[in-house]
Structure formats: structure tokens, C-alpha cells
């Protein structure tokens, strides 16, 4: 299956902004995070198709996964 993976803020350093990724069926968010060389603790916000997701969320074909470190503003 294919997903769109978007990275933000410091996660882009040495990586990319957006990429299409080919994944095995049943892959969860955690596996994608670890494959990027990131740790669970570094993840601030997971968004799956514009809604908040979890590290355990299972991905499906056509999903857009966005990963942010813990950042904020106002």
C-alpha cells in the first residue's frame, strides 16, 4: 500500500518535507516513526488525514500521515 508522509519543523532536517512511501499492509504509525530514525519520545503530534492519530494507529492505502515534534505558538 502507498501513503503520503509529511514531516515538519526539525523532523525535516536531513530528511524531506513530503514523500510517497510504499508500506506493507497493517503497518502502524510507530513503525514509520522508527524507520525514520526518530524515537517515540520525539513525536509531538501525529496527524492522520487531518485528524489526530496515535502511534498505534494502523495505516491504510492512500492515507496522509503528518509528523510534528512537540512545538507550539500562539
Amino acid at each position: 500500500m502507498q501513503i503520503t508522509l509529511k514531516l515538519f519543523a526539525t523532523f525535516r532536517n536531513g530528511r524531506f518535507k513530503v514523500a510517497e512511501q510504499e508500506l506493507l499492509e497493517g503497518t502502524d504509525v510507530r513503525a514509520v516513526v522508527l524507520s525514520l530514525g526518530l524515537t517515540e519520545e520525539e513525536i509531538g503530534i501525529v496527524m492522520l488525514n487531518g485528524r489526530h492519530g496515535e502511534l498505534d494507529s494502523k495505516l491504510a492505502h492512500g492515507d496522509t500521515l503528518s509528523l510534528f515534534p512537540l512545538v507550539g505558538g500562539g
Binding site: F8, I45, M47, F68, V71, G72, G73
Partner: peptide, 8 residues
Amino acid sequence: VLVNILNE
């Protein structure tokens, strides 16, 4: 930094 977060 919120532009991209709120956009998503």
C-alpha cells in the same frame, strides 16, 4: 510554526 500545523 503553527501555519503548517493548523493547515494539516
